[in-house]
Write a protein that binds this DNA or RNA. Structure first.
Lengths: 194, 194
DNA sequence: GTCTATAGCTAGATAGAC
DNA sequence: GTCTATCTAGCTATAGAC
């Protein structure tokens, strides 16, 4: 039996990703984690603190939980960018295009987040961008020297997040694929321009 | 004094855009519109039906409320695309990067929307994409013939929505500007490739 | 650390006079 | 069409025994 605190976090992570933060009640978490209210409030001051811990877990796990699985067997730095995007596509189609990026969903759901929440959302985005920026940096002179690697990584993130948003709304991976195909074309043209 | 129903819709539109749907209570709408509960429930069966009417209003108003103001004095079809994106940037900076695209926010906030809600969100995205696709179609042979105009319009939408998401989270227009600059560069390379 | 029971509040929605 | 008062359900969080 895993640690109680971990069970709470695991349950909350799934529920926040599938139902959102506001639509997930503490009772939902308790039921899903098979835990009593007293235990949850023993470990966390309140519901928002559970969210903070979930966001910290995402941030800490971006390597082992997201990047490493996406990049096993993929060495080419530019292929890695699109392997990462393909990972999000896999999550989409595996859930009938209803599950996307949990960070993005929370970022738009919580309109006026308390500073600690917003900071953690931003930190997650920053870590994603830094990882992809690293790919583009590693691509070296395959990309024109004057191309801003970090801005290109931000562009990859907006493509993914916007693609997930449209795919979920249309319940179809087609808009996600359209956007990623355009990004792939852009990167190919950058490579051809060297 | 405007029509009561219109006052309700105007108040709900602002509240849903600034606070979100879930965080806006019926009491908030009543107070903001200076209307009593009996009046709201006379015109609408419930809160969700107010949302449906708001989404219909966005859809009906995409020309007069969004495209027309963005495109006055802008005749070049490709400039029109970026004038539209600049309009969203203006909304961002005017609100300290806390207000973005109301449709996108609702699309990610409401995780399992009832079919009528999801259909209207999709219809709003479709209308946006169709308008931008028209711009790229009007660009004619300034773009390579084999470029999918509709996919390019979807790409513009994902850039905008993703950019708004990051700008709001970072409370900075910089990521929005990064993404739009990359899109602009992509379109410029397409034009140069003809 | 875990359990049950419940406080205290706010939500969406309704009733019925006018 | 508009008003006030109110119902019922669900929420977060707490109390206090074990």
């Amino acid at each position: 039996m895993p640690d109680t605190r971990d069970r709470i976090l695991a349950a909350a992570r799934v529920l926040f990703a599938t139902k959102g933060f506001g639509s997930t009640s503490v009772a939902d978490i308790l039921h899903s984690a098979d835990v009593n209210a007293g235990s949850l409030y023993h470990f966390f001051p309140g519901k928002q603190d559970v969210l903070l811990a979930v966001l910290d877990a995402y941030h800490a796990g971006i390597g082992p939980m997201l990047l490493d699985p996406a990049w096993t067997g993929v060495d080419d730095p530019i292929d890695r960018v699109f392997a990462l995007l393909a990972r999000y596509r896999g999550a989409l189609v595996a859930t009938d295009c209803s599950y996307g990026c949990p960070i993005g969903s929370l970022a738009l759901e919580i309109h006026e987040p308390d500073p600690p929440v917003r900071e953690r959302l931003a930190a997650n985005f920053d870590a994603w961008v830094a990882a992809v920026e690293r790919c583009f940096v590693d691509a070296g002179d395959r990309l024109p020297a004057d191309v801003d690697r970090r801005a290109l990584a931000v562009f990859a993130l907006t493509t993914m997040e916007g693609g997930v948003m449209l795919a979920r709304t249309h319940r179809s991976a087609a808009p996600f694929d359209d956007a990623v195909r355009m990004l792939r074309d852009h990167v190919a043209r950058l490579e051809a321009a060297v």
